[in-house]
Structures are given as structure tokens and as C-alpha cells.
Amino acid sequence: MTDSERPQSQVPHPEPSSPDGDQNHVTSNAAPLLRRPWYVSLVFALIAVTVLLGGVALYNRVKNPFPFFGTTYTPPRAATMFSGTVASASGQTAQSYTFAPKGKTTALFFGFTHCPNICPLTLAYLQKVKTRLTAEQQKNFQVVLVSVDPQRDTPQQLKSYMDYFGGGTGVNIPEPRLSEVARAYGVGYSKADIKSKDVYQVNHTTATYLIDREGQLRLLWDYTQMAQLDKIVADIQEVMR
């Protein structure tokens, strides 16, 4: 029986080596397939790369039928519900608050009011995004800020801050519950540049999480993505469908 006639097993099955045990000893019909002209090999190489890159594009499209701009949760997972304190509508008193989608799509962000750059930028972008939604969509969209600085961010301060950025809910969650909620979303934060008990900054995760009306965590955007408003709007509208 020649090599070409020998049936092949799907299980790695060692064939006897040559009698002298020389593993490098190759029969006369060795390697004919690799003795192809270089231009044939080149065509094969081009085909292989095309199939690879095309396959990846197809994979991404199958994974995400809608080409979301944000990073998707596949499959979506239930967003962690939480409770804290918010300012009343008048802003004079504090009241308890429990986060629930209640039929609304939510953009959830963890930040703090003393933040000099990323938090105000993100909220400003979210405000712009909201204005690009239809009136009906605006009614069903909310922005929620969870403070990672509950020591300084009072409910009243959070309300003023959110009002400045077009409205939304600023939630104060005291420790240690805050760290539990943050961890559930994969958010990290820590005090930095501490100058005194009340003068410090907070390093924190700057992702914005999009939660659909049924409370499913659908995707997140990194803050570097937030400036691309049209793509953010498209993501939200797709999730709102």
C-alpha cells in the first residue's frame, strides 16, 4: 500500500518510521505539493489573506448585526440596580432613589462634580446627544450620574451639576455600597493628588454605560468615543428600537 492509498485517521495516528529510524528520511514522493511555482504560492497567499480579513469582517457583522460604535455586551446582561440619595425636584431636600429603567433607556456614568475635564466633557456630549434625539426619544432617554466622590458631592450639588448639563439624575451612594455598585459595573476609582481632607482628585473609569428600557446592559463607550455624536446617537436609537 502506498502512502496515497493509506486511509487517514482523524485521530493522530503515528505511522511507522523508516526502518533505519531516520525521521528525516523522506520518501521519493515527498513534498510535491510544496514544489509549486512561486506565483502559484503568491496567489494562494493572497487568497488566504483575503479570506482571513473578509472572514473577520463577516464575523464582526454576524456578532453585531448592527455595527455598534460602542463596545457591546454579548449577550446583554442585566444591569445592576442600585439605590442612593438624590435631591428633590425643588433641590431643597434629599430623598431616596432606586435606579430602575422604568421603560427608559439610560446612559449611566460614574464621575464627580470636581472633575476638571472628562466628567463635564462626557456630560456635555450626552447633552448634545440628547438634543439630536427626536422629542419622543428624548422622553424615553435619561442620563444618570453616580458620584464616585460621595464625600463632597451632596445630592443638591449633584442636581445643580446635572441641571447645568441639561438635566439628569445625580446619585449619591455612600460607601461601602458605592464600591459594590462600581465593581458590579467594572468601574474603578481612587483618590489621587490628595492635598488635604477636602482637596483631592479622583481617578476613575470614564466609560458611559448604555442600559436599555428592560434593564439590560447593552454597550459602553469610552470617553474618547463620545465626541463622535452621530455614532453615539445611532447606537442609542438602535437600542431604543
Binding site: T71, R77, I118, N203, T224
Partner: peptide, 14 residues
């Protein structure tokens, strides 16, 4: 200063 932390989907735990 606020420092960005990006987050891969499905991350969490640590």
C-alpha cells in the same frame, strides 16, 4: 485630574 479607564465588554471581577 480625572484619569480615563477603558473597559472591555464583559469585564469585571477584579
Amino acid at each position: 485630574m480625572s484619569v480615563a479607564v477603558t473597559q472591555a465588554a464583559g469585564a469585571g471581577g477584579l
